[in-house]
Structure formats: structure tokens, C-alpha cells
Amino acid sequence: MNIFRLVGDLSHLLAILLLLWKIWKTRSCAGVSGKSQIMFGLVYITRYLDLFTNFISIYNTTMKAIFIAVAIATIYLIYFKFKATYDSNHDTFRMEFLIVPVGGLAFLVNHDFTALEILWTFSIYLESVAILPQLFMISKTGEAETITSHYLFALGSYRALYIVNWVYRYYFEGFFDLIAIVAGCVQTILYCDFFYLYVTKVMHGKKLSLPA
């Protein structure tokens, strides 16, 4: 464990708790892409299948359990409890256009052709594009609530910090995982446009609105 990965994990935890809190407090999931949340749920479930079989540390097990629980709770709030506030007209990104290619790629490019490894690879590839429906929804509505933009900033920062963690681990531990690194770079690059808007607008107290 290194500081970059720890701060990255905490940023990730902050992001998903922020979103859950926003939906619960405002009793509305307006502006939130349910499709992205479903894909994040899939990411955690396929990645943390070894939750009960492969004990790494208390921290590792606890965080995995929290991520899965919060993801399921968020999906529940969006599609059940506050279903009336779900903006399905703007959440129209076709998930199958992401899940099918990612599933195929996981079969073709992986470290080990075993079920667990292919599911882990699928999870890594899916996570890199899971935010697309959310970014697409914001581009369609032309704006995002400030709390939603904080959620996105924390979520994007987590994987950016993981990239720094991978550089650190390469130089100090000689460890690297090309699949995670390439997918992590793609994932972070997808946030660049948002990061620019966040820094130039939200940090100056303005609302995040995309140029019409």
C-alpha cells in the first residue's frame, strides 16, 4: 500500500458515498445516470468475487464489501425508491454497446484464461468506460448539479491517483499490470474534458454547464 493508492481509494469511497448521500438527501436522482450505476455495480461484483475466497487484509475486504453495498444501495434508490425522479429520457446511452465489446475483449486480452481472471479483466475494462452514460447524460442535459460534479471529480481523481500508484509500484516494487494501467489511462482520459470544466467553473463557484 502507498499513499497514492490510499488517497485514491478514499477518493473513490468519498465519490460513491457523496452520490448516495445526494440522492438520499435530495430524495431525487435527477441528473444521475442509472446506467452508469448499474455498470459500476457490475464492475464491483465481477471484480470482488474473491471477496470470500482470497483474504488480502481487513482493509481490502472491508472496502470491497462497502463498494458492493453502496453500489447496490444506489441502484436501489435510483430504480426503486426514487424511481419517479429518474430521468430516463436523458439516460439513453446503450449499455450493450459497452458491455458486449468489453466482454469480448476480456476473452481475447487477459493474463490468464480462467473464469476468475476473465471476470476480473472484464471488470477492469468495463470500469474504464462505465462513466460514459453519465458524461453523455450531462452533455444531453447541458449541465450537472454541483454535488454531482463533485462526485465525478472524486471518481475521476481516484483512477488518476491509481496511475500515480502504478508508477510508484513499478519503480519501487517492480510491479506492473499492463491491463489495469492501459484501462486506467483510458478511464482517466475520459474525464479530462470534465476535469477542465470542473476546474474552470465549479472551483470558481459557477454551476457546471456545458457550452450549448
Binding site: 493508492r5 481509494d9 473513490h12 474473491d50 482470497n54 488480502i56 487484509s57 481490502n60 472496502m63 470491497k64 463498494f67 493474463h111 490468464d112 476480473w120 491509481y162 500508484n165 510491479f175 499490470d177 489495469a180
Partner: peptide, 10 residues
């Protein structure tokens, strides 16, 4: 290929 402990990241 990476050994098993490599999957220590979230």
C-alpha cells in the same frame, strides 16, 4: 503472468 498476490488492489 503476475502471481496471485498481485490482486491486492481494489
Amino acid at each position: 503472468p503476475l502471481d496471485e498476490e498481485a490482486k491486492d488492489e481494489l
